[in-house]
Computed example of a mutant assay.
Amino acid sequence: MPDQPSTLRARRRAQTQRTIQAHAIRLFGERGYDATTMNDVAEAAGVSPMTVYRHFPTKEDLVLVDRIGELIAERVVASSTGLPLSRRIGAALVDAAAALTGDDLTADRQFLLVRLRLMISTPALRARHLDNQYALQQAIVSALGDEAADPDTAFRAQAAASACLAALHTALVRWAADEGRTDLPRLIGQALAAVFGDDVAGSAR
């Protein structure tokens, strides 16, 4: 089993990354983003500052790095190719939100809520968040593989992904304003309905 050591290292690396980020988000929420340093995060996580920088090269990365793009891409790949792109992407967004905010995932839901508040309220993070939105759009299009191989199809996929992500952003802002008390997948479905109509929203929730 030659891959076992490398797999174990990858798991340890992922766990270290999650631990560092969890402490960072907690500190940012308690003290404020600007008042918290990378050294503060390292001390709270019980690692060296060098380890923090190895996993998160910039302070913004401590907030913005996530697996959401991966989750959405997986669900796009698994969706039926016979459905319109907007329905497939919309359903992927709703399913990913449900996976991150389920009833048995209170800690994950709180983590996501604090991250979202930071993205909305911190100017430096708002700018980087736009870059992340573009990267997420590209991840969705890439997940379509050969379906988006020609320029015209890729263009339509980019447009559909952009519209769905705009609906997602609107739902996330509302969810943050509601202090996470409302059902995020349902809010996303409502935002999709406002953009595409009830047919897409219904298939996405």
Rank of each mutant, 00 (worst) to 15 (best):
T51S: 15
E60N: 11
L116H: 11
E70W: 14
L112H: 07
V47L: 05
R109N: 05
V76A: 12
E70S: 15
D61R: 11
R75M: 08
R88W: 04
V63W: 03
Q110E: 14
E60V: 02
R87Y: 13
L112C: 10
V47E: 03
E60H: 08
G102Y: 11
V94D: 00
M50C: 07
R117C: 01
A107W: 03
R88F: 10
L118Q: 02
A96F: 03
Y53L: 10
A107F: 03
D108T: 05
S80A: 15
L83Q: 15
T51E: 14
P49T: 01
T81C: 12
L85C: 07
T81L: 15
P49N: 01
V94R: 08
P84R: 13
L83M: 15
D108L: 07
S48M: 06
P57L: 01
L85N: 09
A91M: 06
P57F: 04
G90N: 06
D95Q: 11
A97T: 12
L112Y: 03
D95K: 06
R117N: 04
V63T: 04
Y53E: 04
E74W: 11
A78R: 12
S79W: 01
A92Q: 11
R109V: 04
E60P: 01
L83P: 13
S80L: 07
I120Q: 04
L93N: 04
D108C: 02
D104W: 09
S80C: 08
R115V: 00
T101M: 06
L100R: 14
L64W: 02
P84K: 09
I68F: 15
H55M: 06
T106C: 08
L118A: 03
A96G: 10
I68N: 13
P49D: 04
R75S: 00
L71I: 09
D66Y: 02
D95I: 05
